[in-house]
């Protein structure tokens, strides 16, 4: 565990908490893509199946359980409790366009052709693009609430910090996992446009709105 990895995990945890609090406090999930949240629930479920087969540390197990539980809690709030506030007219990204290629890629490019390994690879690939329905929704409505921007910034920072962690580990531990690194780069690149808007607008107190 190095500082980048820890900072990444904290950013990830913060993102998940911000989202749950935003929905809970405002009693509304307006502006949030249920499709992205569904993809994240699939990501955590398929990746953290190793909770049942490998014990690493208390920290590791607790974080995995928290991410799985929070993703299902978010789905529950969006699709059940605050369903009336779910903005499904703007949440129209076709997730099969992500799920089908990601499944094919996981079957073709993996470390080992076993069920758990393919599910892990699938979750890494899916995570890299899971935010697209959310970004699509923001671009479609042309704006995002500040709290939604903070959520997106924290979530995007998490994988960017993991990239620094992998650079550190490559130099100091000789560790290199091309699947995670390439997917992590793709994931971070997808946020670049948003990061730019966040820094130039939201941090200066303005609402995140896109040019028409």
């Amino acid at each position: 565990m190095n500082i980048f990895r820890l900072a990444g995990d904290i950013a990830h945890l913060l993102a998940v908490i911000i989202l749950l609090l935003k929905i809970w406090k405002s009693r509304s999930c307006a502006g949030i893509s249920g499709r992205s949240q569904l993809l994240f629930a699939i990501v955590y479920t398929t990746r953290y199946l190793d909770l049942l087969t490998n014990f690493v540390s208390i920290y590791n197990s607790v974080m995995k359980v928290v991410f799985i539980a929070a993703s299902y809690a978010t789905l529950y709030l969006m699709y059940m409790k605050f369903k009336a506030t779910y903005d499904h007219n703007h949440d129209t990204f076709r997730i099969e366009f992500l799920l089908i290629p990601v499944t094919a890629l996981a079957l073709l490019v993996n470390h080992e052709f076993s069920v758990l390994e393919i599910l892990w690879t699938f979750s890494i690939y899916l995570e890299s693009v899971a935010i697209l329905p959310q970004l699509f929704m923001v671009s479609k409505t042309g704006e995002a609430e500040s709290i939604t921007s903070h959520y997106l910034f924290a979530l995007g920072s998490y994988r960017a910090l993991y990239l620094l962690n992998w650079i550190y580990r490559y130099y100091f531990e000789g560790f290199f996992d091309p699947i995670a690194v390439v997917a992590g780069v793709v994931q971070t690149v997808l946020y670049c446009d948003f990061f730019y808007l966040y820094i130039t607008k939201v941090l200066k107190g303005k609402k995140l709105s896109l040019p028409a």
Binding site: R5, D9, H12, D50, N54, V56, S57, N60, M63, K64, F67, H111, W120, Y162, F175, D177, A180
Partner: peptide, 10 residues
């Protein structure tokens, strides 16, 4: 080893 690293990272 790398297999253990995989389970360690989140």
């Amino acid at each position: 080893d790398d297999a253990a690293d995989k389970h360690d990272e989140l």
